[in-house]
Amino acid sequence: MLEINCIKKTFNAGTINEKKALNGVTLKLEEGDFCTVIGGNGSGKSTTLNAVAGVWPVDSGSIKIGGVDVTGLCEHKRAKYLGRVFQDPMTGTTATMEIQENLALAARRGQSRSLKWGITKQEREEYHELLKMLDLGLEDRMTSKVGLLSGGQRQALTLLMATLKKPHVLLLDEHTAALDPKTAAKVLELSDKIISENKLTALMVTHNMHDAIVHGNKIVMMNNGRIIFEASGEEKKKLTVEDLLKKFEEDGGASTINDSMILG
């Protein structure tokens, strides 16, 4: 479903701030794979997701989604294939628009937009039912502006929006990092539920090793813009946080381990 083939990206090439962010990342996800991505700060986790999303073009390598080569497609054209949830709860939704209007925008992802009404009566009823599923009481506030919602509510809404139109690949970029632990757990549980119910292919970046082990059927660890460890299926289930820390040390990445990863 997702084939990343030896992608490389260097930011500020040729300047004093040159940063080799991706050093030949190769990753293949089958349909229905839920892959977690861990690694220290600056290891290239989020950069990999941004490369898939097409925030900027890669320097070399190729990216295929569902068999289609999207390497040359810009961000808004690639959106057709992707659902995205960002680290910052403010990024995924439009604050000045109503909850139902945000959902309507997401329902038309990848379609050409016309002068038809931006939201129909039938959609309103559908969204009412979908919002009930979140169990946050948002179904009674459909005409409220999204700016009035809390970070957790916005993130749950973003998740719903990202999967409203079934994406080929769902990209979750540390989407619980900005939330309090309780809300983070709830949003993560919701992510699990949506992914398994819809049999989505997903790529989730996290700082929390425990979460990375518990969720999904595949795990990759990154350091210095490369994937240094990969596990799936039974092998992944047996992993412990200690195992992962050891892998880090082996690769000389120990210095990048931060508190939240150990505490996780």
Partner: peptide, 17 residues
């Protein structure tokens, strides 16, 4: 809708295609 979304949050707008 696309204009309103662009004005408020262009990142989100691009992510919605």
């Amino acid at each position: 809708f696309t204009i309103r979304a662009t004005g408020c949050n262009s990142n989100m707008a691009r992510a919605q295609g």
